[in-house]
Write a protein that binds this DNA or RNA. Sequence first.
DNA 1: TCCGGTTGTCGAACGCTGTTCGTCAGTACG
DNA 2: CGTACTGACGAACAGCGTTCGACAACCGGA
Lengths: 256, 256
Amino acid sequence: MATARPDGPPSGPPAPELPTPPGRRPRKAAPPRQPLTQDAVIETALRVLDAEGLEAVTMRRVAQELGTGPASLYAHVSGKDELRELMLDRVAAEIRLPFPDPARWQEQLKGLAREIRRVYTSHRDIAMVSMGLVPTGPHLLDVAEAQLALMRAGGVPKKIAGMAVDTLGMFLDADAIEGTVYYAKAPAGEDPHAFFEEYFGQFKEYFSALPADRYPVLTGMVEELTDPDDDGRFEFGLDLLVRGIASYVEDEERPG
Amino acid sequence: MATARPDGPPSGPPAPELPTPPGRRPRKAAPPRQPLTQDAVIETALRVLDAEGLEAVTMRRVAQELGTGPASLYAHVSGKDELRELMLDRVAAEIRLPFPDPARWQEQLKGLAREIRRVYTSHRDIAMVSMGLVPTGPHLLDVAEAQLALMRAGGVPKKIAGMAVDTLGMFLDADAIEGTVYYAKAPAGEDPHAFFEEYFGQFKEYFSALPADRYPVLTGMVEELTDPDDDGRFEFGLDLLVRGIASYVEDEERPG
DNA sequence: TCCGGTTGTCGAACGCTGTTCGTCAGTACG
DNA sequence: CGTACTGACGAACAGCGTTCGACAACCGGA
């Protein structure tokens, strides 16, 4: 389609009055010119995110991936911040939400938290976007709605549920960031797991070498502090929170 | 102070061998040439942080504040990341640490958490640096040591204390970020409190306008969700965590 | 007293970033 | 057929972190 036409009309390039010289093409080598929608921008950005992390998601990188320049993106997205929020909401759409069963609300809430963690950590450091952000996207709101529905079904008072959804969100964001930030530091070509292992070993060594007179408790707990059991730590915090929330249930049902 | 003295001794300026020609100055207008230490760099960075937020703390900005170029900083600091960690540790030095009293360990732990929150939030969004960072600086380690000492004094098992210090840290970081991120968004000249008020009002309006059929629970809790009672939310989460930690104490003492 | 080496300073530059402007092509509509 | 309008996008701006290399100041030894 529309290959170079050396003697065509002077329509394309910004040549002032002369006919275009033989070597020059009318602006470009005929790009397919596909429409470029907001969805395409978001999906491309997510591809870059999954492949190289949030830091690599720049306007220029996304534009390049789409075969265009950075200015083209601003017709579909107001800026980088909005793009990041749109990416997060797209990711939130992957979270499978439970149908509330009042009798099992605590286990369901934990399950939902695990599901959020699973989805967040499967998209690199996307959780950084969520930190300190009021959820406004439709899917993010779906998730909040589901959490609130579970707690309300379990008899958690409105005021408590309102605060708990915030605390839980903070916990989930912080955990996902903590879990992915080290992997993000790993060099591109290297095996992330091996890098992780060595990285953690260095900290263990560092803590062991600390002066015991200034840090008596800490130096006696090096093993416990450098235990790389992410899942265990997550379950610990989650259990703390859910049990605490449950303690505010007004009218607790008792068997018998 | 020190006006131009064309025929003075060549002590100050770095004139090579010839007397400097009348029009030309010897490279520069005689800077006092103060030594420029790592401490000076950190302190200047903190001044910029307190005045304009973490985003304004750039190498160039700090250098400019010190009357030099960005390259000069790299003799005292390995890069921006290290500078940020050094800033955080300097801030952590302001945290007043308690002397453990086993009988009151829970209240002491809460008090320490409140103190950390106070210091963090008094330095804009410095908490962003802490998120997802293993504490290695001396003062940061002092804080961790204090938390661990309190819990161990209260009879919390090593394994639990090791995880709890992590969970508590995540909570504190996330809370401080949440609390300061909105203020950071406020335009420079504007009153942050008024901006904050209006910002929150917009969200209340937004939530109220949400479709009730898709978000039945959420739309029935707008008041609870947009309650700007930061302190209340913090105390809620803190109480959840500390109570949860206390539930793991093995050999609980009982009066009588 | 001089002299060579080491250390800290810093102007200039490289390659990157988000964003804006103005121009241009293609389309839709009267 | 002309004319608005929308979206694409090259070029540029101001700023970023970091590196390089030239250069001044100091310091130990001859």
